[in-house]
Every structure is written in C-alpha cells, then in structure tokens.
C-alpha cells in the first residue's frame, strides 16, 4: 500500500504547463529525495500536493491513503496529515508565532476528536521543541517568520512539523541557506519523526543533507516529469556528472 500516489499529473500555473505527466509513489516509512535542475517543477509539485491556489491540475490524480485529494481544501489536506515545509516561508507581521501554532495544533486535535491544549500546556510543549531545535525563546512572542533569518525560518517550519505530527512530510529545500549547526538540528528533528509509517519527500539540490537523512529512493525531476528513480548511489553520479547525464527511463 502506498501512502501517496501521484498519477500522470499535468498541472499548470497560469497558462504554462509545468508538470507534464508526473508519476510518483511514496511508500510508508520511506525517505524519497527529489533532485532536479532549477525550474524543473519541484516546488510546483509540492504546491500541487498541498492544494496551492497558483496551480491548476488539468489531468491525472493524487491519491492519499487511496483517496483522491484533488477536491479537498488546503486545510483539509493538512488536517488529514499532509505537511509542506515551504521553500520560502511567508512572513506574517502581527500574527504571534505561538498563537498561530497553537491555533493550528488545536484545529488538528479537534479534527482528531482530542481535547484542545490551553495556552500553558501548549507552551510547555513548544518550549521543549524550541530547545531541541536550538531556537531562541523569543520565537514564542515574535510575529510569524517576521524578520527571521533564513535559518530561523527553516527551523520554524521544522518546529511546526514536529508539533503537528503529519504523516506525509514534504520538505522543499529545507537545507538551503542553513549553516552546519542548523542543518544538524533540522536533520535531527526530521529523523525524530521517522516512525516506520510516515513518509518523507525531500527536495534538495545538495547531497549534504542526505548524509544526515538517509534516503531510500532518489528521483530525478526534469521538465515536469520524474525521469529516473534509483537508490542512494545515484547521488554521487549526479554530483559528478550533473543532470545532463541522466537519460529518461522508458
């Protein structure tokens, strides 16, 4: 049983077709890495999965746990367990980071029929993860992503992932702009989430993060399609020879 199945998806942004018959299956408990040149459609793929308004799916289907999600609102997909760590998390001045995350967590808990956490209970939890990720305590009181450095934004995405406990986790260039310490902290956070059931889609340009988060599969995305799927050994070849060397598999 696959947790996520992307079947021959064609998708456009505006008038331009970006995904051109993309096929991909995520297995439970596995780490799937996606690599590919700039502009190939990697971020578009992640936006398509979470239901971003920019993207219009014109053909194909996406199944999550066997059911199509294409007609679901973004918040429903999130509540069902799909999470995207954005390549460029948006800044929202005036929305308190802790308040935002508590609202999101309580929406999820409510959806699962659990009791909502009050502010104190929530803060205790949040502080635990802040410390683990090496984040400053003022992240509680600051506005969501406002004025955060690149690394702080990425850590904040991981914080949300840890607290919301999703089942399909898409990480769009979580490693870009991170220093060594941040990369380690973020990877630890991700590895903590591995439980044999959750699956990960790690979009990256660099093999560095794959030293920390061991991938099970490498997929090459080029010109709107997955043109090759292989084991971790493919990374070395890509590093050496670039994407030009990859031939589309039949």
């Amino acid at each position: 049983m696959k947790i996520l199945e992307i079947k021959d998806v064609h998708a456009k942004i505006g008038e331009k077709e970006i995904l051109k018959g993309l096929n991909l299956e995520l297995e439970p408990g596995k780490v799937h890495a996606i690599m590919g040149p700039n502009g190939a459609g990697k971020s578009t793929l992640s936006k398509t999965i979470v239901g971003h308004y920019d993207v219009e799916v014109t053909e194909g289907d996406i199944l999550y746990k066997g059911k199509s999600i294409l007609n679901m609102e973004p918040e429903e997909r999130a509540l069902e367990g799909i999470f995207l760590s954005f390549q460029h998390p948006v800044e929202i001045p005036g929305v308190n980071n802790a308040y935002f995350l508590r609202t999101a967590l309580n929406a999820k808990r409510k959806h699962e029929g659990k009791e909502e956490l009050n502010a104190a209970e929530f803060l205790r939890e949040m502080k635990k993860y802040l410390e683990m990720l090496g984040m400053k305590a003022d992240m509680i009181s600051r506005s969501l992503n406002e004025g955060f450095s690149g690394g702080e934004k990425k850590r904040n995405e991981i914080l949300q992932m840890l607290m919301l406990e999703p089942e399909v986790i898409i990480l769009d260039e979580i490693d870009s702009g991170l220093d060594i310490d941040a990369l380690r902290a973020v990877s630890e956070g991700i590895n903590m989430m591995k439980d044999g059931k959750r699956s990960f889609l790690v979009i990256t340009h660099y093999s560095r993060i794959l030293d920390y988060i061991k991938p099970d599969y490498i997929h090459v995305l080029k010109d709107g399609r997955i043109i090759k799927t292989a084991g971790p050994e493919l990374v070395a070849q890509l590093e050496e020879e670039g994407y030009e060397s990859i031939e589309e598999e039949a």
Binding site: V50, G51, H52, E73, P74, E75, R77, A78, L79, L84, F86, P89, V90, I92, P93, G94, V95, F100, L101, T103, A104, A107, K108, H111, S143, Q160, L164
Partner: peptide
C-alpha cells in the same frame, strides 16, 4: 500559509485582519 497548517479559511482571515 495559515490554511496549509490546518486553520480554516474564516479563522485564517480573522487572524490576518487582526494582525
């Protein structure tokens, strides 16, 4: 962004208006 974290559209709008 807010909706992608499971917050309903009405609540998300309210959060932004208050922000």
């Amino acid at each position: 962004y807010l909706r992608s974290r499971g917050i309903s559209e009405v609540e998300a709008r309210k959060m932004l208006v208050i922000a």
